[in-house]
């Protein structure tokens, strides 16, 4: 009875697949949240007031040192009971906040490493040409700081995707929860959970390849030491 059954597999597949929208949607929502919130960390860390920086660093350290699962439980179960500011959030929103904030602290670090990698001369040239602070960041610093971080940011997308099943613990019904439900109803776990594994593989692996491609494309555009060959030169020399 516990043997692999293709029949069950085929039956479970559409069932489990129903959760894919939630799984992908939650991944994207968490990731976008983390990308945006990461910027906030990066910039508040640069506030030139020491006590403020210490507080921010401490908060970031605290968030990173606490398991995301604990944070999820806190936001979903404990937050509504906090007097004054507490409120009840839907499982999906809780998951976006929890995973988003957790990973934003890592992504903030990634941004910071990118910004630190920009040559000091670029800041000086921006001053010499009298760019405003905003222009300096949007036209000069970030366009150079972000491309090198794309592989790291991409890795975090894949890590995030693999962390999203955590949200099933607070009732977000993604593919893992669907497989569980199927298992509970039919007393068959092997096939649905195999499907979950396959789905994760099928989505993670192409993403990794895609990110790799994007990275190479970015590096070409913001070419570093090596000239990109004859193409741009011949274009420049072409008449017109």
């Amino acid at each position: 009875m516990n043997n692999w059954s293709w029949e069950i597999f085929l039956e479970a597949f559409p069932y489990v697949l129903e959760g894919i929208g939630i799984t992908i949607g939650l991944t994207i929502a968490c990731y976008l949240f983390a990308l945006i919130f990461g910027f906030i960390w990066t910039f508040v860390r640069r506030i030139p007031v020491k006590p403020v920086r210490w507080v921010i660093l401490w908060i970031m350290e605290f968030i990173r040192s606490t398991p995301p699962l604990v944070q999820l439980f806190f936001i979903y179960y404990a937050w509504p009971m906090v007097p004054g500011i507490g409120m009840t959030l839907s499982p999906f929103t809780s998951a976006v906040l929890g995973l988003g904030i957790h990973y934003s602290t890592y992504i903030g670090e990634v941004y910071r490493s990118g910004i630190d990698g920009v040559d000091k001369g670029q800041w000086e040239a921006s001053r010499a040409l009298n760019f405003s602070t905003r222009q300096k960041w949007t036209k000069i610093i970030l366009p150079q700081a972000i491309p090198p971080t794309i592989p790291m940011l991409g890795n975090y997308l894949i890590i995030m995707f693999k962390e999203v099943p955590l949200a099933s613990t607070i009732g977000v019904v993604g593919i893992l929860q669907m497989a569980n439900n199927f298992g509970a109803e039919n007393w068959r776990y092997l096939e649905p959970l195999t499907i979950v594994a396959i789905l994760f593989l099928v989505l993670s692996y192409p993403s990794a390849i895609l990110i790799n491609k994007l990275e190479r494309k970015m590096n070409r555009r913001f070419d570093k030491k090596t000239p990109t060959g004859s193409k741009p030169i011949s274009k420049a020399n072409a008449p017109g």
């Binding site: 040409l129 366009p143 150079q144």
Partner: peptide
């Protein structure tokens, strides 16, 4: 003008020159 040029590596030569007049 700097010792180490400090051109903007992500911009073409023309963009290097144009950006400040347009933006600033």
């Amino acid at each position: 003008v700097f010792q180490h040029f400090n051109l903007f590596p992500h911009m073409t030569i023309l963009e290097n020159c144009m950006t400040a007049p347009v933006q600033v």
